[in-house]
């Protein structure tokens, strides 16, 4: 039984859950993900390991409610269980030897970035965090980033909180001022990660992006998560999810993410009703 021990709304559309999953917890590391299914008829949803407690045997996941499957998941209450929870999957973030790192998080991608910040700080690295959101209401994990990072810059597209603009503005300013980093780590929407890669390219600073392609099994079987990196076919589930951002074909990845868009509307509508019912009960 993968019981939901804690459930918390980080904003109107984003939920954090602490799930009892001892097998996944005992080897989980920053940068990895899990695949869970809310119910027996549910989709396999890949979600980043947003935190873990090996002793308690728990893994935290953070997800945005975007479609049918995440709505079913969000309608689960504390004390209820999810049907399946497999992990950890993917290769952990490589932090060895890094002394100074800029970690860039965009939107719900901050859930991926935060454990990376935590791991870097634990090994004594100097961390600049730049976190960006569309608007104030969508901000998540601000306090955690501020508490863990040496410096933290928050931006919103509409200037409703922090600096106005996207994450590339402060990053570009800091790089232009001559500051050096061992690595820039980016997690967020594909257009953002692409923009970060373009921002850092002229400075030749090593840049890593955490990819989030469509997946089914997540264990190296279906080939759905293929990403072109430096002209080679890589599978995000077993070779990634992190790759050299200067080599990733982001345009192709963006197109591939839309593969099932025409077929998902129906499921979403069905789940909307269920979700609405349960959230009305809760409020």
């Amino acid at each position: 039984m993968y019981t939901i021990l804690k459930k918390e709304a980080l904003n109107e559309f984003t939920v954090r859950m602490t799930v009892s999953a001892p097998m996944a917890a005992h080897r989980a590391r920053a940068g990895q993900f899990v695949i869970l299914r809310a119910d027996a008829r549910g989709e396999r949803i890949p979600l980043t390991v947003a935190g873990y407690d090996r002793e308690a045997g728990t893994v935290d996941v953070i997800f945005q409610i975007v479609g049918g499957a995440t709505m079913s998941l969000a309608s689960k209450r504390e004390g209820e269980a999810v049907e399946d929870f497999a992990g950890p999957l993917g290769v952990p973030t490589r932090t060895d030897g890094l002394k100074k790192v800029a970690v860039i998080g965009g939107g719900v991608g901050c859930a991926i970035a935060l454990p990376v910040v935590r791991e870097l700080r634990a090994q004594g690295a100097d961390v600049l965090s730049v976190i960006g959101f569309r608007t104030k209401g969508l901000v998540i994990l601000e306090e955690e980033f501020r508490a863990l990072s040496d410096r933290c810059v928050l931006v919103t597209d509409d200037a409703s909180l922090g600096e106005k603009g996207n994450v590339c503005a402060p990053l570009s300013r800091i790089l232009a001022a001559g500051e050096q980093f061992d690595e820039v780590f980016a997690a967020g929407p594909l257009p953002m990660m692409k923009a970060v890669a373009e921002t850092t390219r002229p400075y030749a600073v090593k840049t890593v992006a955490s990819m989030n392609p469509i997946m089914i099994d997540g264990t190296g079987m279906c080939g759905c998560c293929r990403v072109t990196v430096g002209g080679e076919r890589k599978f995000a589930c077993v070779d990634g999810p992190e790759f050299d951002a200067h080599l990733i074909d982001f345009d192709e990845a963006m197109l591939r993410l839309r593969t099932y868009a025409p077929f998902e509307a129906r499921a979403r509508e069905r789940h909307c009703n269920l979700f609405r019912m349960r959230s009305e009960e809760e409020s």
Partner: peptide, 20 residues
């Protein structure tokens, strides 16, 4: 992992491995 042919267009929307 599924094999692909390494021909142009293999990562287009609508190309799947039989496994998927």
């Amino acid at each position: 992992l599924p094999n692909f042919m390494d021909i142009p267009g293999e990562n287009a929307k609508g190309v799947f491995s039989a496994n998927e």
